[in-house]
Design a protein around this nucleic acid. Structure first.
Length: 488
RNA sequence: GCCGCGUUCGUCUAGGGGUUCAGGACGCCGCCCUUUCACGGCGGUAACACGGGUUCAAAUCCCGUACGCGGUACCA
């Protein structure tokens, strides 16, 4: 099995593209096949310089290593279409010689004029096809010598696929089953553009054939052009690879997950945005895998290895799927929790040092231990600055609601208990507090809330015993003193 | 308009003729645990688009309609 991911470097890697790459990757790994990356840079108008590097970086981030591709090599290279133009010309001439394609000289104005001529309410977008091609300037209407003269004059021209009406083109899609099209509904697709570069349709079948691709797995937006590809394979006498069209990922309001549509709802379209926001690669991969595929049982969490073992095309759905950010967030939370505290500390050390001057690695690891069940992203650690420094303000709403007349009094008295406490462990601190509650005959909340406010400046957070044990005796006493001057 | 694909809880989905007055997950709500916020546990909310067939029996098969999505470029 040989599969490929063939993105166009017209922008940063799209999250939907990543899913396509993932499904290809999983299948290749599962079958011990090859996963190929091919850059489809035949559109010079939309070419974006930094895009290829972004594609490479994002695939590496997600853990999708390819076996052949730009920078990696392989025996079927080059893997950039801009470096393979000669081969496309070769195939295009073969097709013209065989009468399967023809040369056309019509410029934009001629094309517009033709469409204008035929446009009606019933036919808003007339096609360049069997019904109109005889009105145009092409190899079918000009004599061979006229064509040659124009070519000799270097007149701009394209090469079009000659689609004859009257027959049915069908193929079996691995996701959708049998799909058929009538040939008269298909236009004479341009194969070779006047700039000398091929269109996707030509380049794609030439490369898939030359690179011995066995399974073409791509988005559903390609389904309508697949009959053209089938025609091309047949014209060349090549075998048609297995086709599989994946359901489109849609925005929560419906419609393709386009930049404008999605980002308005807080759903980034570029994979790099997910990296910037601090998503775990495993979480995005897990989420994307389940967006359009399901294992058939009730497992939700999947590592790349588990996905590789379980994935199959026949469990890929056929209908469009909506991107659900809440679920992605849930996956991220789950995956953050699977990480070792020490591992998270490695990631967060620099920021901890820069923001809080915390260079004590053991301290960082323990702080992470207190926060882990409360994080969606690793960097949520820093949403609790009191783990590293005295609060510089106190949550006003919480104070207004729960800071009572006796609060300062309790705090002051409990400070004495703490000051005389010798053993500064979680267990001992718990004992100390219980002793206070018993002696003073008050509820836990009477002291717990003021204490929490003094130490963290907030009304919620990790266990207070653990927090005091973390920050230490002196810091605990200092924070209580500070709060007593700041709070009523 | 035409062509193609699709349609089970709000979302991702299981189920593909009887065992399902439809199961799981996210979300939401409630309860329990708990000093708090979370975690966790338990429970709840909520769906077979519609209309015809076929059949003893249909969410499951067929046809139609509606709706959604994609395509309709010298873009991919």
């Amino acid at each position: 099995m040989r599969v490929r991911f063939a993105p166009s470097p017209t922008g940063f890697l799209h999250v939907g593209g990543l899913r396509t790459a993932l499904y290809n990757y999983l299948l290749a790994k599962q079958h011990g096949g090859a996963f190929i990356l091919r850059i489809e840079d035949t559109d010079r108008k939309r070419f974006v310089e930094a895009a290829e590097q972004d594609i490479l970086d994002m695939m590496a981030w997600a853990g999708l290593a390819f076996d052949e591709g730009p920078g990696k090599g392989g025996s079927y290279g080059p893997y950039r279409q801009s470096e393979r133009t000669e081969r496309y010309h070769e195939v295009a001439s073969l097709l013209v010689d065989a009468g399967k394609a023809y040369i056309a000289f019509d410029d934009d104005d001629a094309l517009d004029a033709m469409r204008e001529r035929h446009r009606t309410t019933e036919n808003p977008t007339p096609r360049y096809d069997h019904s109109t091609r005889l009105e145009m300037l092409n190899g079918l209407t000009l004599s061979a010598s006229e064509v040659q003269e124009r070519l000799d004059r270097n007149e701009p021209h394209v090469i079009r696929l000659k689609v004859d009406p009257g027959h049915t083109i069908g193929f079996t899609d691995a996701v959708r089953g049998q799909v058929v099209f009538e040939s008269e509904t298909i236009d004479d697709q341009v194969l070779m553009k006047s700039d000398g570069l091929p269109t996707y349709h030509l380049a794609n079948i030439v490369d898939d054939h030359d690179m011995c691709i066995t399974h073409v797995i791509r988005g559903e937006e390609w389904l309508p052009s697949t009959p053209k590809h089938v025609l091309l394979y047949e014209a060349m006498g090549w075998e048609v690879p297995t086709m599989a069209h994946l359901p489109l990922i849609m925005s929560p309001t419906g419609g393709k997950l386009s930049k404008r549509n999605a980002e308005k709802q807080g759903i980034p379209v570029s994979v790099s945005s997910y990296v910037e926001q601090g998503f775990e690669p495993e979480a995005l991969v897990n989420f994307l895998a389940l967006l359009g595929w399901n294992p058939g049982d009730e497992q939700e969490m999947f590592s790349m290895e588990e996905l590789t073992a379980s994935f199959s095309l026949d469990r890929v759905g056929q209908s469009g799927v909506q991107f659900d950010m809440k679920k992605l967030l849930w996956f991220n939370e789950q995956w953050v929790r699977t990480r070792a505290d020490a591992d998270l500390a490695d990631q967060l050390a620099t920021e901890a040092s820069e923001r809080f001057g915390c260079t004590d690695r053991d301290y960082l690891v323990r702080a992470i231990g207190l926060m882990k069940e409360r994080m969606v992203f690793a960097r949520d650690l820093f949403s609790a600055p009191y783990l590293f420094q005295s609060p510089d303000s106190y949550d006003e709403a919480a104070v207004a609601k729960r800071w009572k007349a006796a609060s300062a009094e309790h705090l002051l008295r409990f400070r004495e208990y703490l000051a005389s406490s010798g053993d500064w462990t979680v267990e001992a601190l718990e004992e100390t507090l219980k002793a206070y509650v018993e002696k003073e005959e008050v509820g836990m909340g009477a002291i717990m809330f003021p204490l929490r406010m003094a130490l963290s400046g907030t009304g919620g957070g990790p266990s207070l015993y653990a927090l005091m044990a973390l920050i230490g005796k002196q810091e605990t006493l200092d924070r209580i003193d500070t709060s007593l001057t700041a709070l009523p």
